[in-house]
């Protein structure tokens, strides 16, 4: 309605061609029992997954059930901070609120012992040297900066091990 004379001006109002109705809603977030345990694990500097009692897959993080079997995951599994890059992308496009320099690498990392990969940054290696199968380890923030959030994991970096065999992660692409 920006180009229209105001109703109080005495001039006729032309047809309304646009109406902006800003909407904002605020919500509380409830992570739930399983995800709370995962977040509390991050606060201690560990990755805590949960195992499905039926298919024995380990989800990290678990949302409380096995999506395949529809049963509760109850057994906690503490995972080492090492894993394999299953796939990745080089981010060259800046975006609003960006807190990291481009280009950077966002990768899916399959933690050792887990059956679900999750996204992490890869650093301490030139972008053009990152590859599928690369072995990495988590770099955590300082102990007094750990919080129940993924911000506790600064990034992953190469851990020097030889690349993983494709067969070990081909199910997780």
């Amino acid at each position: 309605m920006t180009d229209q004379p105001s109703a109080g001006s005495g001039e006729p109002i032309g047809p309304v061609t646009m109406l902006a109705t800003p909407i904002r809603l605020d919500f509380d977030f409830t992570p739930g029992v399983a995800q709370s345990r995962f977040l509390r694990g991050l606060e201690r500097g560990t990755f805590l997954g949960q195992r499905c009692p039926t298919c024995h897959k380990v989800y990290v993080p678990s949302r409380g059930t096995c999506p395949t079997d529809g049963v509760a995951t109850t057994e906690d599994v503490e995972l080492a901070g090492t894993g394999t890059v299953t796939t990745y992308c080089v981010v060259n496009v800046p975006f609003a609120g960006q807190s990291i320099e481009i280009p950077y690498i966002a990768a899916q990392v399959l933690l050792d012992g887990a059956n679900l990969s999750f996204m992490g940054l890869i650093q301490e290696i030139p972008a053009d040297e990152v590859r599928m199968g690369m072995r990495v380890e988590a770099v955590w923030v300082a102990p007094d900066e750990l919080t129940p959030s993924l911000a506790s994991v600064r990034y992953f970096r190469p851990n020097g091990e030889p690349d993983a065999d494709y067969d070990t992660y081909k199910e997780y692409l």
């Binding site: 509380d28 409830t30 739930g32 029992v33 995800q35 409380g64 059930t65 529809g70 509760a72």
Partner: peptide, 12 residues
């Protein structure tokens, strides 16, 4: 208010 479970855990 159930602030212990997420949607999936509440439904299971």
């Amino acid at each position: 208010r159930d602030d212990v479970h997420n949607e999936v855990e509440g439904l299971l």
